[in-house]
Design a protein around this nucleic acid. Structure first.
Length: 225
DNA sequence: AGCCAGGACTGAG
DNA sequence: CTCAGTCATGGC
């Protein structure tokens, strides 16, 4: 866990996902798709001020009104539809924090993926940050950071990238939570697409750690992750 | 003025 | 199945 420890020492505990409740985490997970979080906050603020930030209130909202609230987060028409679908599931399950507690992770993940507009990252974000399940979240920063260092291929699939972490780390939601949050922090500060600051990157010299002949396909040692 | 941000889905080929 | 195109606002 050389990389994780280095990030943790640098950035400290993130206690991540800027939201008040599990439901708000789920809402944010949809709204932040390919979108800056600051824009998502405005949309969530709109929902809160309209007192529609609950499953039933949100489902009562006419689609056009919902889209209007979501406008600042971009893709507002699509996201209105996706959010409605997710919230319909949420309401149908009662409170998923409780009702899914004994459901196997794989089955629950499949259930989320079946909701239109919920892809692998959104599903894993909800599983991890709303439901406390050990689902490692892979995002654009994760791919960019690891590919730039040459630790994974640029065209590794989501599942391959995820396995890099799940095979190397103890299966603990609290660890996955912190790790992903740390990668986002690192990504924002040092691994922007446009202006990367690789010179100052805390992982700069990790690249020189000798990667032992690897037991698994993607060439990273358990020790390094 | 572009380019980018914590993706997912669709229709071609 | 791969992949370019699509969706859209706000910040730099």
């Amino acid at each position: 866990m050389a990389i994780y420890r280095r990030l943790a020492r640098r950035f400290g505990a993130r206690h991540w996902w800027p939201a008040e409740t599990p439901f708000e985490v789920a809402v944010g997970a949809v709204l932040t798709q390919n979108t800056a979080w600051t824009n998502v906050e405005r949309a969530i603020t709109n929902l809160r001020r309209a007192r529609t930030l609950t499953p039933r209130a949100l489902l009562r909202l006419p689609p056009a009104r919902l889209a209007a609230h979501l406008r600042p987060s971009g893709y507002f028409n699509i996201k209105a539809r996706r959010l409605r679908a997710l919230v319909a599931w949420w309401a149908r399950r009662g409170d998923p924090v409780v009702t899914t507690r004994h459901q196997p992770l794989a089955a629950l993940r499949q259930e989320l993926l079946a909701i239109p507009g919920v892809g692998p990252e959104t599903a894993d974000s909800i599983l991890l940050y709303a439901l406390g399940r050990p689902a490692f979240v892979v995002d654009a920063y994760t791919r960019r950071i690891f590919a730039r260092h040459g630790w994974v291929s640029w065209d590794a699939t989501y599942d391959e990238l995820q396995q890099v972490f799940t095979r190397a780390l103890p299966r603990r939601a609290t660890l996955y939570n912190e790790y992903h949050a740390l990668l986002v922090e690192l990504g924002k500060r040092f691994c922007a697409k446009r202006r990367p600051r690789c010179d100052a990157c805390p992982l700069r010299d990790v690249g020189t750690i000798r990667l032992e002949a690897s037991a698994h396909a993607l060439g990273i040692t358990r020790r390094s992750i």
